[in-house]
Design a protein around this nucleic acid. Structure first.
Length: 480
RNA sequence: GGCGCCGUAGCCAAGUGGACUAAGGCGGGGGCCUGCAAAGCCCUGAUUCGUGGGUUCGAAUCCCACCGGCGCCUCCA
């Protein structure tokens, strides 16, 4: 059974096969770089990262484009307000985006085009639409004529006649559209409130591209048409993706994208996470409070992408503890590797195989990560159980098989790999201080002086060092 | 008004007509282990899936109604 994905176009699960053998082309809507992205934005990006990683896990080559929106109302207003240029405004936020991106363990896409680098191509696309009678110029602006594009709105399954007309006309933005439902491709005319931060020459006079234009152009530039998968947040289904389709298909006469995937939003304490509501958290906010990216990633990819995810600090604590559990079982397997041929046989190989099969089955089912996590945690429990029975000494091949399976699943989850990089450095002095305390404590225990042993353990705990006594001696680790 | 989603144990969350006698995580209780802990394991926790009806041999899963929560409807991931 192969991978099945829920396609917004058909509103049902469809068997996924790339058009080109062995190679998947994807377009994923990226951030608007007028401010730092919040963890809700990253929830969507992480869902797409899981998709990317799983496609690779299945053996496909992936070509992914993720755009950076550096020209739209928000970037322009922010630049004007601060009296700086668009590039000057967006550059630090692009950098911040990549910092957060990497800290959350997202794999890098193949292309990160910025909208402003493609204005000539956008103009070309608009010209094509005008030539084909799908767009018209009015007072320096160009609009898409939805009445000339019969399938308009099919992605969102909206009846265009039901669209509310003229709702935005009352504000300070009055357009010369023939029909209020038409959308703007090129914004010309006088825009004193936008200063000169975003003005390009065009056949229709100075102006700037409409927001939807960039994604059509960037996808057509970097990917075949049609390409395999286009994804983004649910809020983009209408109008953004709807308009993207109209622009691209209108200009080329060919289908734009085959599969459309949409991720539901993250909530913060049960309410929509959004900048405009002031209800959001950034990765920095969380890291400053001591939360680890591995736990944040674990929480953000714990649930199905088509289900809302309620982000709370309590859930984040739970997530952190569950990551600990996996790290512990992996550590235990590593130290249990034994070349000793006398080591008792275990069921590890068999359990491992079953876990991988369950993992794949779950992921094949529209990326059901919740169930896939279940397969991993079941393996963790069973492995611990086997290790208990075997006295932590198992044949190397069996322990290695389990370790390989955990690593394989984590190639998709990407959580343990992140956690590895989070281990704090312990200075040589601190290390020797800890070792000295442990030696001292071992002596005290051997002598039956438990009061002293416990005092030393408490002192270590005060320094964030946790002590565990095992049959083969005490070991320590830093509290995470 | 239009389109759509959700309500499963204390919390998070899979399952969406029959091997469900409902995964998994976190937390709680009991036990094993330990000098005591920690870690780990074992046992325990929903006779039940928002409520009320209906369809069916069979429903958490389908239909209807109601209650509660949420998203989108022209530049929000």
């Amino acid at each position: 059974m192969g991978l099945r994905l829920y396609n917004t176009l058909s509103r049902r699960l469809e068997e996924f096969q790339p058009l080109e053998q062995g190679r998947v082309s994807t377009y994923t809507c990226g951030p608007t770089v007028y401010d730092r992205a919040h963890v809700g934005n990253f929830r969507t990006f992480l869902c797409e990262d899981i998709l990317r990683r799983y496609l690779k896990w299945k053996g496909y080559e992936v070509v992914q484009v993720r755009n950076l929106t550096d020209v739209d109302d928000r970037t322009i207003h922010a630049a004007v307000q601060r009296g700086i240029g668009l590039r000057e405004l967006t550059q630090p936020y692009i950098q911040a985006f990549f910092e957060d991106h990497d800290r959350l363990g997202l794999e890098r896409a193949e292309y990160y085009p910025r909208a402003t680098d493609y204005v000539p191509q956008m103009i070309e696309l608009v010209q094509k639409l005008v030539e084909r009678g799908l767009a018209y110029e009015a007072d320096g602006s160009v609009y898409f004529d939805i009445s000339e594009f019969p399938s308009y709105g099919s992605l969102a399954q909206i009846d265009t006649s039901a669209l509310r007309e003229g709702e935005r006309e009352a504000g300070d933005q009055v357009y010369d559209k023939e029909d209020a439902r038409d959308f703007v491709l090129w914004k010309g005319g006088e825009r004193p409130e936008e200063g000169d931060v975003a003005v390009w020459d065009s056949p229709w006079g100075p102006g700037r591209p409409g927001w939807h234009l960039e994604c059509s152009v960037l996808a057509l530039t970097h990917l075949p048409q049609p390409f395999d998968i286009h994804s983004g947040g649910v809020d983009l289904i209408f109008p953004h993706h709807t308009n993207e389709i109209a622009q691209a298909e209108g200009a080329t006469g060919k289908p734009f994208a085959r599969f459309w995937l949409h991720a539901k939003h993250a909530l913060l304490d049960g309410r929509k996470m959004s900048k405009s509501e002031g209800n959001y958290l950034t990765l920095d906010d969380l890291v400053e409070h001591g939360y680890r990216p591995s736990a944040i990633r674990r929480l953000l990819v714990s649930g199905h992408y088509r289900t809302e995810l309620n982000f709370t600090l309590a859930s984040l604590d739970d997530a952190a503890r569950s990551v600990e559990r996996l790290i512990e079982v992996r550590r235990r397997l590593e130290v249990s590797l034994s070349e000793d041929v006398e080591a008792p046989r275990t069921r590890l190989a068999e359990l491992t195989q079953r876990a991988l099969a369950e993992f794949e089955e779950a992921m094949d089912d529209d990326l059901n990560v919740a169930e896939a996590w279940g397969a991993l945690f079941v393996l963790a429990r069973e492995a611990n159980s086997e290790l208990d029975r075997a006295g932590d000494r198992v044949p190397a091949v069996e322990a290695q098989a389990a370790l390989d399976a955990v690593a394989s699943m984590d190639q998709v989850f990407g959580v343990l790999a992140l956690a590895e990089g989070e281990v704090a450095e312990v200075s040589a002095e601190k290390r020797s201080w800890i070792e000295a305390r442990l030696t001292e404590r071992a002596r005290a225990r051997a002598a039956g002086d438990y009061a002293r042993a416990d005092a030393i353990r408490a002192a270590l705990a005060g320094e964030g060092v946790e002590v565990e006594d095992t049959p083969s001696g005490s070991r320590w680790k830093l509290r995470r």
